[in-house]
Design a protein around this nucleic acid. Structure first.
Lengths: 242, 242
DNA sequence: CGGTGTGAAGTTGTTCACAGCT
DNA sequence: AGCTGTGAACAACTTCACACCG
């Protein structure tokens, strides 16, 4: 299936490590701004909220960029991580779906700050098309394919309603996009070479609720029954043949 | 012994499983709406985008709710997962920071749909305080503590600028909140009994960029040097030896 | 038969602890 | 002395494969 094992060159960076590199990068940028020149794994770990052994192992996957007895050169490490993440080039990003969330994303400074440039906004609603947001004119989603090709867009953010997401997804993939950030609450079906990351607000809340509930009722086992009026019995209800 | 599974009884559901339950729940709701009565692990797996063995193992952590040879009763499973996640009660949620993102969250229907009720909006900007959004009047952040207590708010969403996030975090924790969903791009420092989940838009993009870059340059090793000359000559290999 | 529930094997990620470099 | 880099132990998660049941 999805195996990312090419006979390991230096380039076999574990997913878990990749997910933490942006965190280190942010911490390093903060340190750099304060004029810090070098940082130990211990300090970087504290700033990123992880364990120091993890920092050292993560960074060792990029190469030996530290100095024993001293630590890591902040600027050098920023450069190496940026390069590894591909942030030394800039990426043209399109946002599809300019509702509340799409607008928030378009106006979100954090995107632009590193390597990412929002190059197009799309919506299907004629009332929204033509509107100017964050310096861009919203285009009709009909133009998706041509704009993606013309502007070299390589990452697409889907911020449409759930019902439109799969269709948009299919179209951008057909247009050659292989990296998608999906905010719609659906599981997108994509071919294996396409990379999808998902951000789902309500799932995050549900996970919090789980832990909150567990904290609340110290552990007693709750009644394992339906509310009475439902009157459900396990063995039934599937009797009907097709 | 920093063991997450402290004195838990048989209800020790793995984190990875908890994170997938909302996914199953959504898939099951979709099935229920189409009138489906039972579902096999294979079908549910397809709908949730995971492997079927994973579905069975995940569900087995909740109890034996399937029927061999048949599958799972959709309604019954919806109820059990909802109960496990704590969605049979409803949770009062506050959003702090009513910028673009905060507004989008306040208006996002997905929250309200299951168990979550947005009970307060806060901002520090006097120009925003008093504004009516999604049926709620934005309150000044000064009222944070009292409103949290009065309305029984148990989950707080932080959608402030990075600079304000830690302060807001400290205050809501002091007011008794132990579940936080953080959208600000900072690592929040919290005591161990507090649960923080983080959603970071720019980190997701950076992870995508990493994979996109790797796809682009099939595998050749790139120049491993500073643009200028920093003179770090790479000298690797000879790793093990002990 | 068809499909769940689950030991066991396999994989990935985390943490420890220390050798070895600066 | 101090701190990195890393084998090795450990822990978590995933997948397999099959006994068992309806």
């Amino acid at each position: 299936m999805i195996r990312r094992t090419h006979h390991a060159r230096d380039r076999g960076i574990p997913d878990a490590t990749v997910a933490r590199l942006p965190l280190y990068l942010r911490a390093l940028n903060a340190l750099a701004e304060r004029g810090t020149l070098t940082v130990s794994s211990e300090e970087l770990a504290a700033a990123a909220g992880v364990n120091s052994a993890k920092v050292r192992k993560d960074l060792s996957h990029l190469g030996s960029y530290g100095t024993r007895g001293v630590g890591y050169d902040v600027q050098y490490l920023i450069y190496q991580i940026s390069r590894e993440l591909g942030l030394t080039q800039d990426w043209a990003v399109a946002i599809v779906g300019v509702g509340n969330l799409g607008r928030a994303l378009a106006n979100y400074g954090g995107f632009v700050s590193r390597g990412f440039r929002i190059a197009a906004l799309f919506d299907a609603d004629p009332a929204v098309v033509g509107e100017r947001i964050a310096g861009l004119v919203v285009e009709h989603v009909d133009a998706l394919e041509s704009v993606i090709k013309d502007r070299g867009i390589s990452i697409v953010v889907i911020a449409t309603p759930a019902s439109a997401a799969q269709d948009v997804c299919d179209r951008v993939i057909a247009a050659g996009v292989t990296s998608i950030l999906n905010f719609a609450p659906v599981v997108l079906a994509v071919p294996p070479e396409v990379n999808v990351r998902k951000v789902d607000l309500s799932i995050e809340l549900q996970i919090l609720a789980f832990h909150e509930q567990r904290k609340a009722n110290g552990g007693p086992i709750m009644a394992d029954q339906w509310p009475d009026e439902v009157g459900h019995v396990r063995e039934r209800s599937m009797g009907a043949g097709s």
